[in-house]
Design a protein around this nucleic acid. Structure first.
Length: 176
DNA sequence: GCCAACGTTGGC
DNA sequence: GCCAACGTTGGC
């Protein structure tokens, strides 16, 4: 995904929610646009993930991201492109207001406030890896050959990650 | 509903 | 900056 702009609106509630299942995800952001360092510096270390304008990604954000789900924060279009750390879901899918703002780069005149086309979530910084894990490194790990991020032509900015992939990558990050 | 044209993503 | 891969749009 590309341009993040605004900061969070979420009221952080610290009530522990029972977790039925924990999902894992990967979100892409261009390092130059909104990096994991930017997220760590944001108020409450939280931002709303606005600007996603792809239906498949929208469906994930609206329907499948659950409180407490963990997210790999991926720097796309970067030197090098890499998984830079971890964030978590602190607010589940809600309408993306940037679609209603004519001055926003992500304005979408076709999105109706009564029936919004686009959704976003709030994410909070959890951890910045000491060393980011570049694509080139990830490609060398046999257990990751099926990972969505590594598939040819994969452009989706919101991707599910399997528990197995999550384990491999977090262990790799711990070793760095 | 097909598909060409166009726009975007993102690795290299 | 190039360009392959993909998504969207709109004419028919």
């Amino acid at each position: 995904m590309a341009a993040k702009s605004s900061t969070s609106e979420s009221k952080s509630k610290t009530t522990a929610k029972p977790k039925t299942s924990e999902n894992y995800w990967l979100l892409k952001s261009e390092e130059a646009v909104f990096s994991i360092q930017d997220l760590a510096k944001a108020p409450k270390k939280t931002t709303c993930w606005d600007g996603v304008r792809n239906y498949q990604a929208r469906n994930f954000l609206r329907d499948s991201f659950k409180l407490g789900d963990l997210i790999f924060y991926y720097h796309s279009n970067s030197e090098p492109s890499a998984i830079a750390g971890i964030a978590e879901v602190v607010k589940e899918g809600y309408p993306d207001h940037s679609a209603f703002d004519p001055d926003d780069v992500h304005f979408d005149p076709k999105s109706d406030k009564a029936k919004p086309t686009w959704y976003m979530i709030d994410v909070k910084h959890v951890e910045t890896f000491k060393k980011p894990l570049p694509l080139e490194l990830l490609r060398q790990i046999p257990g990751l050959s099926e990972m969505a991020l590594l598939q040819k032509g994969s452009r989706l900015s919101v991707q599910p990650v399997t528990a197995k992939e999550w384990k491999i990558i977090t262990e790799l990050a711990a070793k760095q």
